[in-house]
Design a protein around this nucleic acid. Structure first.
Lengths: 215, 215
DNA sequence: ACCTGAACACCGTTCAAGT
DNA sequence: ACCTGAACACCGTTCAAGT
């Protein structure tokens, strides 16, 4: 835990605080994101941060909004399928870059500017392309459920590194008790070329086709 | 924070600790689930808990596994579509009863007995009903992504109570900036009979039909 | 207006001591 | 074997004080 050089007065801003918090969360995880660690990284005393954010909750809210700020904004006059797919891929990648995001979203309920802007753009794509309000509601809910859930699964798998640990799991587990998992691990997951990520496009096609059927 | 009566010696077990932790997390949320609060609820001193669990991480792992213990175990000789749908509905309900579960899952990577057992049952349903290993992998990933993601969205919405706060949001927001959201809120979400939950069956049908196409 | 130091009421967990 | 008390190194945040 090395202490950074002291930052000059008036150099601290809300943006710097949030950007630094994102970096810290990416690098060390949310549990390590303490006001003290953040202050240290910013070259400032913990209480200085409170001049720019209300409290830690405020920072966590901003963290989630920051992630949405990285997500592609679909345009309403494009082909709706491709726009929806692009924004879904972009959302998945953003959630993948910031593995803490899905878990954090669950407790954050104050949506920020970037979140609302993205939400608005998606709704505009749907409503401008023949979706009724009801169809748009279903389509949006289903597509986002898939993207969030896929990102969640990838985050779960990321900390375990499936291929390399599958062998360990297979050894440790009672194979007579979980024969399907043993088969699945040995004959599929551990084979060269397997990638969980490949299922993303498969599922995305399903939910976007399904959305099209609602239109 | 009332202190419970002191529990008699030898009455503490790992099962009681975990069950109490689930109750506490349901009632007050995970942040309020501290070793001290848990001990208080159990009628014991904090350190007594450590005779039955390794540490707090161990409890959090057990919490997630407890949720999977509530999920329907599909049977392989049934109709695979109905079995998959039942276990998906059951999983969604379990995640809904324990709103903290999806967020916790992201950081827990040591799957427990109940988790593995459920995983095994789902794989068995797919592999016993004509799915190749590759098709089963895609189907499982996509269906679970949808269920996890839907539960995550419901958890997000639960803490906000959409219908009642939609008006507030609509008033507070710059309507010229988010016209689609204003329209969506006013003409759809706030209408009587609207329920986000209705999108679950719509999406479930999409992903299960999609899975069938992979078979 | 912005930053700091000391302090308060919390955490999870250790260790030695009790039964 | 199981439980406790005191202690340690942490938390987020308050408040009064500095510049």
């Amino acid at each position: 835990m090395m202490v950074k050089a002291r930052a000059p007065r008036n150099s601290l801003t809300r943006e710097r605080v949030v950007a630094c918090a994102v970096t810290l969360a990416d690098r060390d995880g949310v549990p390590a994101l303490t006001m003290r660690a953040l202050a240290d990284e910013l070259g400032v005393r913990p209480m200085a941060i409170y001049n720019h954010v209300a409290n830690k909750e405020d920072i966590l809210d901003a963290l989630v909004d920051h992630v949405f700020g990285e997500v592609y904004l679909p345009v309403a006059d494009g082909a709706w399928r491709e726009e929806l797919a692009s924004r879904s891929r972009s959302l998945r990648l953003a959630l993948g870059r910031h593995q803490w995001a899905t878990a954090l979203m669950e407790t954050r309920v104050r949506p920020g500017e970037a979140t609302l802007t993205n939400h608005e753009a998606v709704l505009d794509v749907l409503l401008s392309n023949g979706f009724s309000l009801s169809a748009a509601a279903h389509a949006y809910a289903v597509v986002d459920a898939f993207v969030y859930g896929f990102a969640l699964q990838e985050a779960m798998l990321a900390s375990i590194d499936l291929p390399s640990s599958a062998q360990t799991i297979r050894d440790a587990m009672d194979l007579t008790k979980f024969p399907r998992m043993a088969q699945f691990a040995g004959e599929h997951v551990m084979q060269p070329g397997y990638s969980f990520a490949d299922s993303f496009e498969v599922g995305l096609a399903m939910v976007i086709d399904g959305a099209g059927a609602l239109r």
